[in-house]
Simulated scan of single mutants.
Amino acid sequence: MKGAGKPGPLVLLVLTVVALALWWALYSQLVPFAEMVTGLFPVERNSHIGEAIAFFFYDVPKVLMLLTLIVFAMGVVRSWFSPEKTRALLAGKRQGLGNVMSACLGILTPFCSCSAVPLFIGFVSAGVPLGVTFSFLIAAPMVNEVALILLVGLVGWTVALTYLFFGLGVAILAGWIIGKLKLEGWLQDWVREIHSGADAPEGVQAEALSLFDRYRLGYVAVRDILAKVWLWIIIGIGLGAIIHGYVPEDMMGAIMGGGAWWSVPAAVIMGIPLYTNAAGVIPIVEALLGKGAALGTVLAFMMSVIALSLPEMLILRQVLTLRLIAVFIAVVATGILAVGFLFNAIF
């Protein structure tokens, strides 16, 4: 009998609740896990190498767990939408609103740049316009609520709110520009195939699939995407862990404190090789401001660290072609430079 042996919807929903509870239980223990593993190494916990080890063993499972959950969920959701329905729902005329909504969503998701990549992949695989997904990818690490709260304590609410609006502006405008350039053809081939649709079994309407079939499509999405990106996630985060904590604050403070026009571009360039989240970069920002660095220059550095990090680019390389990564960097860097110069002129 067709469909025999498949668990029913009620059983699948119970299993889903159990799986989500288990996922959350494991996710909530990532910090103790990283500390436990770090303690196995013969190093001082507060040393540079100790910080790097703890950072690596926290971020790798965090990103992989987020990727698994989000891609599975997007795979299931995508099974309800044919390519035609997705295109009709997300037509070009709604792109501007989509950029605003996805950027605002980014404020509510306290992700670092690498942690935002799984949701970016999920959005792309679900057929969301490329420019809209980039608005989220930029906003999520740059203007999340953790960064804003810490900035209020560091430089006051006026500067923090100004940073919020400028950061949102960069995310919305950059995503809108990338969307207008129609660069979907510059996605990697395997991502472009997912983006174009055809996920339901041949000859089966999306509405006719059982819940078990939809879950199976979610599993297939996780299997296929993880197989392509897991190694680069580890390499990217490993690189970030190595350079995490090794920030030459004295040298950077001297460069960023000067009034020369090139101090803002130099700060952006210095931020790209580094990797941390918004909360992690705030102490560096505080130290640089204490050394006399200009506010706009320091904020441009902060934006560069959390929106254009080299580890993030290594992971995105498995999703985007080099041409699209170059466009992404150019558009976002231009927005960050504008923010830096404007802050230096205003404050």
Rank of each mutant, 00 (worst) to 15 (best):
L337C: 00
T133M: 12
S125C: 15
T86P: 00
T109C: 15
F120H: 07
V31M: 13
A73P: 05
G245Y: 06
I315G: 01
I282Y: 01
L299M: 15
W261P: 11
Q205R: 12
G167P: 00
K291T: 05
S82V: 00
W176A: 06
A21K: 07
L89Q: 07
I237E: 03
L342I: 14
V220D: 05
K228S: 10
E202T: 12
L66T: 03
H195I: 06
C114F: 02
A21D: 08
L161C: 05
W157L: 13
I243Q: 14
I177W: 01
A345S: 13
L274G: 02
A294F: 11
I177L: 08
P32T: 03
A206E: 10
A241H: 08
E249S: 15
I49G: 03
A171R: 00
I329L: 12
F120S: 04
T109I: 15
A19I: 06
W157S: 14
L15H: 02
I233W: 04
A208S: 07
L90V: 04
W261I: 14
V319Y: 02
F55V: 04
M303Q: 13
M36R: 11
L322R: 13
L187G: 05
S210H: 01
G153N: 10
A294E: 13
V124S: 05
V285K: 06
V63H: 01
L108F: 12
T86W: 01
L22W: 08
A227S: 12
L119E: 11
M101R: 12
L274A: 11
G280A: 02
Y58V: 10
I194F: 12
A4Q: 15
L342P: 11
K2L: 14
L164I: 10
Y219S: 15
V37D: 01
A333C: 10
L168Q: 00
G122P: 12
V204L: 14
G280T: 02
A198N: 09
G50S: 05
L173D: 07
V76E: 00
F165A: 07
G218W: 00
V247M: 15
V191E: 00
V17F: 07
I329R: 07
L288P: 10
P32E: 02
I234Q: 04
I172G: 04
P311V: 06
V222G: 04
